[in-house]
Simulated assay, not measured.
Amino acid sequence: MKRLAAIVVFDIDGVVRDVSGSYRRALADTVERFTQNAYRPTSQEIDLLKSEGAWNNDWEASQELVYRYFEAQGTLRSSIDLNYQELVTFFQSKYRGTDSEHWTGYICAEPLLLEPAYLDSLTQSGIRWGFFSGATRASANYVLEKRLGLQSPVLIAMEDAPGKPNPAGLLDSVQRLENEPEQMTPVIYVGDTVADMVTIERSRTLQPDRIWIAVGVLPPHVQQNAEQTHYVNTLFQAGADVVLNNVQELTPEKVFELTRL
């Protein structure tokens, strides 16, 4: 089998699809609902939480913001009556909709941030690609297979691995994409959060003989506003080797440039 030139693994939310009006909107709805309409986090407040690097899961992020709101009112976390499963159910009713068979929620209107032709260009250049995301498998497959028309792509989703920045899911996706483990093919991971960048740092620690490149992508909600510079700097501070405005700027030529440094 032909030796791989490189492996590129993509996060999905904020990289493959714009979730500012879906996941993030559902997160804000959920916090508002479980604080009895007293608090709705702004986009900047959600970014600030995620910059801590520990809140890749939006259900857990919603729960944490609810806790922090009540703590700010002087209530001990241990005395807050919050049912996590009810929170998840409400979140999903907004994101997917209330019909489990035919989704009608915010997910249906997510703008795509890449085209299948872009992935084809990577393949034609000897670059193998796959996905490692904190999204549920059903949500990830909705965009990858139904929206983009991909046929059973390599995907490690929420159900398949510990949440980021634990690198287990990234290592698993690389193993599935690589022809032979001893090749130690250079790997690029593309993400939009601090947790994504830290995931690469931890992978580098576990496999120091492999070239690992962290590529940050600015999610649409921070582009062309006052938060952009801060967001870029935060990604660099978390370990990004380069930060792009759109995933398709990671052309085959850019892949070769980064992996041959």
Rank of each mutant, 00 (worst) to 15 (best):
M1H: 12
A5G: 12
A5C: 08
V8T: 02
V9R: 07
G14Y: 03
V15A: 04
V16E: 04
R24I: 15
A26F: 00
L27S: 03
A28G: 01
A28D: 03
V31Q: 02
E32C: 14
T35G: 01
T35K: 01
R40N: 03
S43T: 15
Q44D: 13
I46Y: 05
S51V: 08
G53F: 04
W55A: 04
N56M: 14
W59R: 05
E60T: 13
A61Y: 06
S62I: 02
F70H: 09
Q73W: 03
G74I: 08
V88H: 07
Q92R: 08
Q92N: 13
K94L: 09
Y95Q: 13
R96V: 10
T98C: 06
E101K: 14
E101N: 14
Y106G: 06
C108T: 15
P111Y: 06
P111H: 09
L112E: 05
E115G: 06
E115I: 08
E115A: 15
Y118N: 05
L122S: 06
Q124G: 15
Q124Y: 11
Q124E: 15
S125A: 14
G130D: 00
F131P: 09
F132G: 03
F132K: 12
A135L: 07
S139I: 00
N141M: 12
V143I: 15
E145L: 06
E145Y: 04
L150Y: 05
Q151K: 13
Q151E: 13
I156C: 06
M158N: 09
E159C: 09
P162I: 04
G169N: 01
L170K: 08
V174E: 09
E178T: 09
Q183W: 14
M184L: 15
I188K: 08
I188W: 02
I188S: 01
Y189W: 02
G191F: 01
G191E: 06
V194G: 04
A195Y: 05
A195N: 03
A195V: 09
T199V: 10
T199Y: 01
I200G: 02
I200K: 03
R202D: 08
S203K: 00
R204W: 10
Q207G: 10
Q207D: 11
P208C: 00
I213Y: 10
G216W: 01
G216P: 00
L218K: 11
V222C: 06
Q224E: 11
Q224N: 12
E227N: 10
E227H: 13
Q228K: 07
Q228V: 09
T229E: 14
T234N: 07
F236M: 08
D241I: 04
V242R: 07
V242N: 05
V243E: 01
L244M: 06
V247D: 03
Q248G: 10
T251W: 05
T251E: 01
E253G: 12
K254R: 11
T259Y: 05
T259M: 12
